Amino acid sequence: MQLVVGRIGRAHGIRGDVFVEVRTDEPELRLGPGAVLLTDPATAGPLTVESGKVHSGRLLIRFAGVKDRNDAEALRGTMLIAEVDPDERPEEEDEYYDHQLIGLDVVLLDGTLIGELTEVVHLPYQDLLTVTKPDGTEVLIPFVAKIVPTIDLENQRAVIDPPGGLIDTEQAEVDGGPESER
């Protein structure tokens, strides 16, 4: 299985170092020295991480074979992709890789099917689960323990306990209508 773990940004200095926008919860594992990464576009790689460090709050990496600033600038915008064993699990008990969640059935506490989990959206403060309902519409579910109390990988389902109005607009609490009608 392939996972996007970063995006190459601008070059830093003259020795071929680049800043990398991290897109993984495990940068020390996926982007550490010795890691071999596929690339998109594929013509840029594969790339092997030679060294890395945090500089001014951002990850700075040097890849083997990238010898100068010109080589580094040519990689700008390249996506970094790691090969991951589909059976690999995160270290923490309540953590999941996106590929483990995609395709799960999403059900209410009483077992009512809501839809299929089709995407995990990573935002700075909270992750959201995109659920595609049987009619093709999508709903975003905050991925927090109060709303998603159970992820059952064995039975391929995510159990949710959504507040009123999150799933169906008919359940939404009336707040007085739009500002223009007040």
Score class of each variant (00 low, 15 high):
10 R>N: 13
48 T>W: 07
15 R>M: 07
35 A>L: 11
91 E>L: 00
37 L>N: 11
103 G>D: 06
134 P>L: 11
24 T>H: 01
79 M>K: 15
87 D>G: 04
106 V>M: 12
52 G>I: 02
24 T>D: 02
17 D>H: 14
97 Y>R: 07
128 L>D: 03
68 D>R: 12
85 D>C: 03
181 E>Q: 12
16 G>D: 09
143 F>L: 12
10 R>H: 11
111 G>D: 01
144 V>G: 03
70 N>F: 14
20 V>K: 07
144 V>W: 04
4 V>L: 06
58 R>D: 11
100 Q>T: 01
2 Q>C: 01
54 V>M: 15
150 T>W: 07
113 L>I: 10
58 R>G: 07
123 L>R: 15
134 P>F: 08
108 L>H: 08
27 P>S: 11
77 G>W: 07
142 P>Q: 08
119 E>W: 00
77 G>K: 08
6 G>R: 03
4 V>G: 04
148 V>Q: 08
11 A>D: 09
65 G>P: 07
45 G>R: 11
120 V>K: 09
122 H>T: 05
2 Q>A: 03
100 Q>R: 00
132 T>M: 12
20 V>M: 11
102 I>T: 03
179 E>D: 14
43 T>V: 13
141 I>Q: 01
19 F>P: 03
24 T>V: 06
165 G>V: 06
121 V>F: 06
14 I>P: 00
86 P>T: 00
160 I>A: 11
169 T>L: 14
17 D>I: 01
73 E>G: 05
18 V>G: 05
44 A>R: 15
79 M>E: 14
17 D>N: 10
82 A>W: 04
76 R>H: 15
49 V>C: 09
78 T>W: 05
140 L>F: 08
139 V>E: 07
39 T>Y: 07
85 D>V: 00
38 L>Q: 15
112 T>G: 02
145 A>Y: 01
91 E>I: 00
39 T>H: 09
84 V>P: 00
98 D>I: 00
4 V>A: 11
127 D>S: 15
108 L>G: 07
57 G>S: 13
164 G>C: 06
118 T>F: 02
106 V>H: 01
55 H>K: 13
106 V>Y: 04
53 K>D: 11
93 E>N: 03
113 L>F: 10
172 A>P: 00
135 D>V: 05
12 H>M: 04
118 T>C: 04
63 F>R: 13
85 D>W: 01
180 S>N: 12
48 T>A: 15
14 I>C: 06
10 R>A: 11
106 V>W: 01
32 G>Q: 10
135 D>A: 09
9 G>P: 04
176 G>S: 08
100 Q>P: 00
51 S>Y: 05
65 G>V: 09
37 L>Y: 12
75 L>Y: 06
41 P>F: 12
139 V>Q: 02
56 S>F: 15
48 T>Y: 04
107 V>E: 11
66 V>P: 11
1 M>L: 10
26 E>L: 00
62 R>Q: 14
74 A>L: 14
67 K>R: 14
147 I>Q: 12
8 I>H: 01
59 L>T: 09
123 L>S: 14
60 L>D: 13
86 P>E: 03
28 E>K: 06
164 G>P: 14
55 H>I: 04
165 G>H: 07
144 V>D: 05
37 L>C: 14
181 E>R: 10
173 E>I: 09
50 E>G: 10
139 V>M: 05
18 V>W: 03
27 P>T: 03
84 V>H: 02
105 D>S: 10
175 D>Q: 13
32 G>M: 11
21 E>H: 13
98 D>P: 01
13 G>F: 02
7 R>H: 03
179 E>F: 13
167 I>P: 06
